[in-house]
Simulated assay, not measured.
Amino acid sequence: MSSIKLGIVLVAVLAMPAFAAETGSVIRADGIKVEPFRDAKTIATLSVGDKVEIVNKNGGWLQIKSPKGKGWVHMLNVRKGDMRKDSSDIGGLLGMASGRAGTGKVVATTGIRGLDEVELQSAKYNETELNLVESYAINRAEAQVFATQGKLVARKFDYLPSPDVSPE
């Protein structure tokens, strides 16, 4: 099984533990949505610096409570904890947006924070989710048909060199 497929299966199979409420600050103005969907109704607008209580998460969305209302906002628009007064932490902000922040102990893809070490350790096997992920698999012939319909062409490329991993 390829490492990408294994990673997808691993994330899909893991059940999320209960979410403990924490505080955060808005780092980019965002609308509070009724549901965790981009096209859901907006009930209020948060401004940069607004304080929120994070009560739940769902994919790339955080359920928050604030004086302006309760609902869902994009995860990347809220920084957990207090917002710093200076701009010296721009690297952390850029890292969060790129999915490359932290010490390597957080699983992240496409700029969305994944599971942390504690969540991974407390995860449980979920056969239903595994079956769902496996239902998305297609065979080589089906992939070829898809590529032909999409007018995709094969391109050869050199793999990147292995990273120099030094022991901790």
Score class of each variant (00 low, 15 high):
V78C: 03
K41F: 11
G92C: 08
V52W: 02
T45F: 09
D39T: 12
N58G: 07
K70E: 15
Q63L: 05
W72H: 03
S47E: 11
K70W: 09
M75W: 04
S66L: 03
T45C: 09
N77T: 02
P67T: 13
N56C: 08
F37Q: 12
E53Q: 11
I54D: 01
N56Q: 09
K57W: 03
T42H: 05
K65R: 14
A40P: 01
K70C: 09
D89T: 10
W61C: 00
I90T: 06
S47L: 11
A44F: 01
I64Q: 00
G69S: 09
G92M: 11
T42R: 12
G49M: 10
H74Q: 06
K41W: 10
E53N: 15
I64M: 03
M75E: 03
T45Q: 07
G60L: 10
H74I: 04
S47R: 11
P67F: 07
L76E: 06
G60C: 05
I43S: 14
K70D: 08
D50H: 01
W72C: 02
T42D: 08
E53D: 14
G59F: 02
I43E: 10
V34I: 12
K41H: 12
E35A: 11
N77I: 00
W72K: 00
P67I: 12
I90Y: 06
Q63H: 06
P67H: 08
R84Y: 10
N77L: 03
G91H: 14
W72F: 04
E53I: 09
N56F: 05
G69D: 10
N58C: 13
T45M: 09
D82W: 06
D50E: 02
S88C: 14
G91M: 13
D89G: 15
E53G: 09
N58S: 13
D86E: 14
G81N: 03
N58I: 07
K41C: 11
L46R: 01
G92S: 07
W72T: 02
H74S: 04
D50T: 01
R84M: 09
M83R: 10
S87F: 15
D82I: 04
L46V: 04
V55K: 01
I90K: 06
I64Y: 02
G60M: 05
E35L: 12
G69V: 06
D86R: 06
V34Y: 04
K68D: 04
